[in-house]
Amino acid sequence: MRRELNLEDMKHGTELVKRGFASMQKGGVIMDVTNAEQAAIAEEAGAVAVMALERVPADIRAQGGVARMSDPQMITKIIETVTIPVMAKVRIGHFVEAQVLESLGVDMIDESEVLTPADPFYHINKREFTIPFVCGATNLGEAVRRIAEGSAMIRTKGEAGTGNVIEAVRHHHLISQMTGKLEMLDEEEFETVIKTYAAPFGRLEKTAREPLWNAPTAQTEVVFNGMTLGEWEDEIRDVLLDIKKRGRLPVVNFAAGGIATPADAAMMMQMGSDGVFVGSGIFKSDDPEPRAKAIVEAVMHYDEPEVIAEVSKGLGDAMPGIEIGDIPEGQRLQKRGW
C-alpha cells in the first residue's frame, strides 16, 4: 500500500489545520515568559504553550513607551528550549512583524493590544499566513470581525497587566450574552447586526473622505484586502450564522487579561472559557513555580473547589494588581483595536 509522495497532496495552513491547532490547546494554560529559563519552568509546570515576550504586560504598563515585537534572538532561544508550542505577539496591524515570527517558526501569533498598535485602520489579514493567529475581543462584534479576518482562536482582552480579573469577566459575559441573543433576532434585526459588525471595515474609506462629504461607505466600495464592504458583510453573515448554529464561537475561546490566581482561572473555566492565558500573573508573583503549577491544576479541576483550595495553599502573594478605575481611559489596553 506504499505510494509515492506527492507534495501536492499535503495541504498546509488550511482553516482546519489552524483551528485544529487551537483546539489542542483547550483546557490548558498558556503562560507569558520573557526568557528560556521561565519557559522551562512553564513547561515543567504543565503549560500547554508559552507566549514569548520581552516584557510582561505589567512592565509594559509601568515603563510606557512603544511596545513592539520581541527580539527574534530571544524568541529563537525559547523555541530551542521547550518542546511545547511557542507563541509570540505582534502589534495590531503589523503584518511584517507577523511575517518575521512566521519565519522564525513560531507556532501561533497573538495580534495583541498589549503592544502598541501599528495600524489605525486595519488588523492583519490573517488568511495570508500559514500559521494560526489568536486575537483579543471585548465583545461579539470584535470576535466576529477577527474570525472573519482569519483568526483561529479568540481570547478576551481583559485588562492585561493589572492582575484584576474583572475585565476578562466583563468581556466573557458580553460575548456569551450576545451569542445567546442571536437565536432570538428576527431577520431584520439579524441584518442590522451584520451591518453594524461589518461597518468598522470601512473606517479608512470613511475617514479619508470625511472632510468632503459624510455619506456612509457604499457596499460596492473596496475597503480591505481587495474586498468590498458588501463582501465583508457576507463574511460576517457566514460567521454569525455559524455561531448561531453552534450556540458558541466556531473557534476556541480563551480567557485572558488579569488572571492572577488559581481561583481566577477556574472561574473563567466555569463560565465557559476553553482555557486561559496567564500573563504577568505568574512571573510577577512571589513564587512563580508553584503558582504556575497550581493554576494548571486548577484549570484541569476547575469545577472541584476542594482541589482548587488544595492547590491554592501557601502560594505566597499574587501580583499586587491595579484597580481598573485608577487607569485613565486612554491608557486602557482593551481600547486598542476594534
Binding site: 500500500m1 489545520v17 501561533m108
Partner: peptide
C-alpha cells in the same frame, strides 16, 4: 512546527 502541520489522504 505548526507551519508544517497539514491535511492529507491516507490509505
Amino acid at each position: 512546527r505548526q507551519k508544517d502541520s497539514f491535511e492529507a489522504d491516507l490509505d
